[in-house]
């Protein structure tokens, strides 16, 4: 388990004002952040640019020292065990960095394997395996400068796994990738956590990706932790409940209290928020007039099976059913605009 306790990171930079004058500027990138990552878990780290995501990843991967607070990896304080921690972690960043372009894919993995102290036989078998896993066996002996962006990104993943890390930090891993490659990468990430038991920290601007992959999400704003929960819980908490819209014929306002009563008996919170005439006014009879009933609930999908028997009981005909489901992106936008306290 990685445990980050009350970590603060303050940068001090000097702005030159002249030949002999400079002013010191301090920037608090991360403030009193407490975070944990268990093995087998995918944890998302979200926030706007400058929220402190990359600083957090760099502290976790030993590249930066916290100004205050502590980081422990499997009970080892990072500050006193940098080398041991480096054996347990690795980082994969989006883009085309962190690879030697004049070396081939295989030579890159061999070099990094050596830096982690692996022996020749182990490096050979591991690099063959990783190249196969990321689909680069055919291009293994081609210089990286001839690789496409997607191939470089896949090689980065192989590089990040060369030391068989127990914890992996992914900083925008699908940045600029084509949709099929991004999907394949997401599947690899899921398998690394769920099948190989690696603890993964993921930052991404693609919030759908975070929603799809992450077990828990930390939301940062200006270095402070705003929220930490499961993605759907964050959506519910920030962007509100889902809304189901049921289009029915034969609606009567007298049914409203009965529907409210029925909704109150459901196993999850559901609230009738509207019932309005939805037809264009040319209907032949009242029974053909279409009404739109809106119900707010924690799970709009479940409502159809729960409302169907009720509508049939009162002779209503269902003409349509739609759901409005806020997602993580809606929640993050609301948070960033300060519309949620």
């Amino acid at each position: 388990m990685i445990q980050m306790n009350e970590v603060t990171k303050i940068y001090e930079t000097k702005n030159r004002l002249g030949l002999f004058r400079a002013e010191t500027r301090t920037v608090t990138a991360v403030q009193s952040l407490t975070l944990s990552i268990a093995k087998g878990e995918i944890v998302g780290l979200l926030g706007l640019n400058g929220a402190g995501k990359t600083t957090t990843i760099r502290m976790l991967s030993t590249l930066l020292d916290p100004t205050s607070g502590s980081i422990e990896i499997d009970g080892m304080p990072m500050a006193d065990n940098r080398r041991s921690v480096q054996q347990k972690v690795n980082m994969i960043a989006g883009g085309e960095r962190m690879l030697y372009w004049r070396l081939t894919g295989r030579e890159n993995l061999q070099y990094f394997g050596r830096l982690y102290g692996l022996n020749t036989a182990k490096i050979r078998s591991l690099s063959d395996l990783l190249l196969a896993e990321v689909g680069l066996t055919a291009a293994a002996d081609q210089p990286v400068e001839q690789y496409s962006k997607g191939m470089k990104q896949r090689l980065q993943i192989a590089r990040g796994l060369i030391n068989d890390p127990e914890y992996l930090f992914l900083d925008e891993p699908t940045l600029g990738l084509d949709a099929p490659i991004a999907r394949q990468l997401r599947s690899t990430v899921r398998s690394l956590a769920k099948e190989h038991g690696k603890g993964i920290l993921l930052t991404s601007h693609y919030l759908q990706e975070v929603e799809e992959l992450c077990d828990r999400v930390y939301v940062l704003n200006r270095g402070r932790l705003l929220l930490c929960d499961k993605p759907d819980a964050i959506v519910r908490q920030v962007a509100g409940l889902q809304t189901a819209h049921l289009q029915v014929s034969g609606w009567d306002e007298a049914l409203r209290p009965l529907l409210q009563e029925h909704l109150g008996k459901l196993g999850h919170p559901a609230e009738l928020i509207g019932g309005v005439k939805d037809s264009d006014g040319n209907s032949a009879s009242r029974s053909e007039e279409s009404y739109r009933i809106s119900v707010r609930s924690t799970s709009a999908d479940m409502l159809i099976t729960e409302l169907l028997p009720w509508t049939m009981q009162y002779g209503l005909r269902i003409n349509g059913f739609t759901c409005d489901k806020p997602n993580l992106e809606d929640a993050i936008i609301l948070l960033s605009e300060g519309r949620v306290s």
Binding site: S61, T62, L63, R82, R83, S84, Q86, Q87, V89, N90, M91, A93, G95, E96, R97, M98, L99, Y100, W101, F112, R114, L115, Y116, G117, R159, N163
Partner: peptide
């Protein structure tokens, strides 16, 4: 400059 320093410093070499 070539963007490989991070990868190098990440390792316990």
């Amino acid at each position: 400059r070539e963007g490989t320093l991070e990868a190098l410093l990440l390792s316990p070499s």
